[in-house]
Design a binder for these strands. Structure first.
Lengths: 211, 211, 211, 211
DNA sequence: CATGAATGAGCCTTCATTCAT
DNA sequence: AATGAATGAAGGCTCATTCAT
């Protein structure tokens, strides 16, 4: 009947503090960029002193890595694919794109910072590529190959096709991050349009005409 | 029978120097990021002294803007669309994607720098958005609407469809910049795959089945 | 029965640090001139790091303004005049000159810096002129006019006469700052000689002859 | 019957160029201060290139010394005193002050720069003190002592009295340089007021009352 | 001699990091 | 564990000076 142990309490407190700081860092980095943002600003935003940050993180870079970790959701992604196998490809694709885009949209400001820094920081880039992009692509390819074998999707170059889909999602995000008003004001319509495009292509008009 | 005048020679020399410095800046910024890179490194990479940089550029930011100017090819882009109107949509799309991707691929390291900084530099972002992205989108939409009226392409949401295409190209680029090996090693196949996908969609398999 | 509070202690520490730095800046600026002096030298002279200076002062200019603030004693000056009205003009003049010169002498190194920079810094100059010189001159003129109305002093051009007195004091100071040995070695005699001269003029010899 | 020789022509050209540059330097230094002013600005003001300056002057400091040399008029000053001995003291003093102040007024912008820099540049200061101030003071003292012996002026402390006069002139100048409007707008009245003050003192009112 | 582009030492200032309290 | 003052390395930029043309 004893309550949580000392260590457990401490663990919770520590985790909460880290969240508090990472959250502040995310906000500040998103607004000013990683290099432009100062630890002082992060501390102020988190409501702690600069020194406290260094009690929880090795250095400023560690803050960025902690932010990146929030984007590590490989497990969930695998689950998305598994679930999707139950339905036909179109249903799966729409569902998947909607989930992906919705989630990515919530985290867009994190992506802004992460992407900005990854583009010019090889170490960070590789770390993210290995831990997130590569596994996800692999899962997607396997899934896609199964669909192809079942004749559900056109025979095509699976790896590049996957990149095309991932790229389309990523590209939409980036366009939004760059301030494109159309995308930012109608983000909820984007998944449907994109799914329709990826399923039918532009040329489906011919199909319509035929019908 | 006189050779080029003094001023003309000087103009050439000045332009060459600027190119020399901007080139070095592109390389250094691409490797280290705009903020991480130092003017000293740029100078060394350009084979000039730090002071010389400031004889040709107002400040470090001006270097970045000079780099961005290389991405300003709105006129050429308009020409691409005009030419493309002569052929059918599929031909046009393939041609366009190939041209765009090829060009973007050559300039990828510039894009790396520009994108990285634009993501976190609102002023730069807006400048680029207004001078490059917006006009291009407008041209593309007009072009697309004409196609729709002619029944060449499926009735769809033109603005978002355009963003999807642009996003797909941009996204592929970003995936490549993030180090995806599949894309980087087979970049010449990307346009065809992407074009096929955008024309037929994944679901074209159905069409195959029909046949 | 509690000692000074946290905030009070900190306030004291902050004030002490500022004094420490301003003192060092005064010495260094006096020796090398404002522009020639480096923040590194000031830091070294103050026994702190360069960074610490910027924890207490906005920038290098702020150091100079802090030095100038030490010369702002307008209130005290007004009091000097008030007190002086109790005695006759000669007594007042001697008293005033002695006070002024004594004080100015203590602050001579501050004056050296301030004057040097004010001569070539219009903004600083105007600031000082408006906040110190103009008010002082006004007080002096009023005082002087009262004396004239009472017949205590010769009818003369009050404003220019005041400038003559102020100028004489200032000029003596400057001669001293320029290294004149006579003045520097006998500064305590200067007030009497100057007062005598301003009261009687050179020509008072005639009066002696009469007697 | 030959015209001026080659060397003489060259000498004239060189001297003219130096004058041209020193004049420009005086203007620029007066406006921006010695340290704040750049050689580029001086060159532009003189209508020559930066390199040309270095053909005529060792370095930037040499420009300042050249400016100071223009203030070296010891010979003329001695002559002033000699001439003045012919008249009575009052006449001499008025004449002298008028001459001095008039001349100093023309050169006030040079004084601004020179004084500003001398205050904080010991070497410059000493050089000027030895070559200009000291000799002038000596001449004045000798002259003054003769007057005293002839009973023309009150017995007083000659050296300090001289400093008082010189200081008054210098102080008036400095007040003007600091922007005092009264002095700057009525500079032509200053000599008379100052002369009257130095001859009679403020207290001469008593003498008037007596008469 | 004149030019002005090139140079690079050195400045002011910022900011990640440390550490005594 | 929290604080925030102190630190000092490093960066962007200036400018006196040089030198090839």
């Amino acid at each position: 009947m004893s309550g949580p142990r000392r260590d457990e309490v401490r663990e919770l407190v520590v985790r909460a503090r880290r969240e508090q700081i990472v959250g502040a860092a995310t906000r500040v980095f998103a607004e000013k960029g990683f290099r432009r943002a100062t630890t002082r600003e992060v501390a102020r935003a988190a409501g702690v002193s600069e020194g406290t940050i260094y009690n929880y993180f090795e250095d400023k870079d560690a803050l960025l890595l902690a932010i990146l970790d929030r984007l590590n959701e490989t497990e969930r992604r695998a689950a998305d694919f598994e679930e999707g196998m139950a339905t036909d490809f179109r249903g799966f694709l729409e569902h998947y794109l909607r989930r992906r885009i919705a989630w990515i949209w919530e985290s867009r400001e994190i992506f802004r910072v992460a992407l900005s820094e990854m583009l010019v920081n090889a170490e960070l880039r590789e770390r993210y590529l290995r831990s997130v992009v590569d596994p996800t692509m692999k899962i997607a390819e396997d899934n896609f190959r199964t669909r192809m074998e079942q004749g559900e999707v056109r025979e095509t170059e699976a790896p590049l096709a996957m990149r095309s889909v991932a790229g389309a999602v990523l590209g939409i995000l980036v366009l939004g991050l760059l301030g494109d008003k159309e995308i930012n004001s109608r983000s909820d319509e984007v998944p449907d349009v994109l799914a329709g495009l990826l399923i039918h292509g532009f040329g489906a008009a011919e199909g319509d005409r035929r019908g």
